[in-house]
Write a protein that binds this DNA or RNA. Sequence first.
DNA 1: GCAGAATGTTGTCAATGACAACTTTGGAGG
DNA 2: CCTCCAAAGTTGTCATTGACAACATTCTGC
Lengths: 216, 216
Amino acid sequence: MTYHHGNLRKVLLDRAAAVIAEQGIEALSLRALARDIGVSHAAPARHFRDKADLLRALATEGNHRLLDYVLAAADAAGTDPLVRYNALGQAYVRFSLEFPAYYRTITHPEVAAHADTDLRQSRQRWHEIVADAAREAQAAGWLPDEDVEDIVIYSTATVRGVAAMLADPTQSSMPKRQDLDSFIERMVRLIIDPEAPQKSLPGNKAPKRNPERKRK
Amino acid sequence: MTYHHGNLRKVLLDRAAAVIAEQGIEALSLRALARDIGVSHAAPARHFRDKADLLRALATEGNHRLLDYVLAAADAAGTDPLVRYNALGQAYVRFSLEFPAYYRTITHPEVAAHADTDLRQSRQRWHEIVADAAREAQAAGWLPDEDVEDIVIYSTATVRGVAAMLADPTQSSMPKRQDLDSFIERMVRLIIDPEAPQKSLPGNKAPKRNPERKRK
DNA sequence: GCAGAATGTTGTCAATGACAACTTTGGAGG
DNA sequence: CCTCCAAAGTTGTCATTGACAACATTCTGC
């Protein structure tokens, strides 16, 4: 058994993520973590100044993973701007379900409050990604009169809210596991519907139309 | 000075709300609370089984206040179903800004996870209120083909998300104090626009239309 | 190899939540 | 009016935790 652990930092982060996924951020204890790993109670301090520092590292890594995840999904969705924007939103919600530990740290108020430069930049990049996608969607006819900033914040808020409600065990009338995909698809389609490139502008005094499409 | 405090329960709740509003839920300490009020460190235990119990009480009270708040706002908005639905959403966001302590406890994951019957019922009532309002809005021509449940969850998610982002100091490009009203109005109008009773259905293959209305 | 930086360890402290045992108070019923 | 008991408050204690200091070991660049 080596005195030096070798990769304690990574092990700490991984184990912390597991604990958070299972029992939530509140349940995370540096000492319990060290105990689990089989290292002295002060060892984590060599890698993280304090508890907040560990959470910040987790949030930063999570943010990068999130960006990779949603960009991959958007690219996989093709080149249609509306489809791409839609895929971005769906991927965001899916990430929150697939990597709850990262997502929780990312959105944890305390973590956000003490965000460092790296974390802030990562968040800023999300903002830019969505803004670019929104501009392309606008060029394709979606909400052409709305402020891009407004659209970005509105879209982000909605997917954040959906993710929050999916994580909330109190919430009644939430979809079962097997209906998750359909549910997410419907929620994000209420933001932007790829099948309706000519989606009307809220505020437009649009003429009558024929509601011919039905929910399947 | 009486041995009995008389209204310690209420004082604890009020002081806790103040602390949470100033420094967040994490900063709340039962002992510090007792110290502040001038009572022994074990006194709070007579009124709240543990810390979670105090937060639950705060969340329950906050939920009732929230419902009163949004219902009053909706009633003040008049009888037009679309205007009413819109007012509901705006009031929700406003509540989160006016009573951050209550709102934080209401949406705190740990609190939600250990919600009691009373709290669950209160949340259920929100759901019903929004569902009723959504049905009336549908009758007025808004999103007639969407599932009411979907609309309710979508709307709730969005206002929750907007509230969360307004509370997030990391978030860049957030409105300044004096622009808050306009910002909230715009966000909620993206959910439902009272000035566009004929708002198209996402998914409708609507014909061309004339984008004549401009953002002021 | 060797000096110093990295990394880990033991020891300690104050703060906290929770609990137990005891005290004071106030009120309901005789 | 008095008595008794439950409600409300107090002191004392314990285990856990995060943080820090002082010390030990290992790794690395030179």
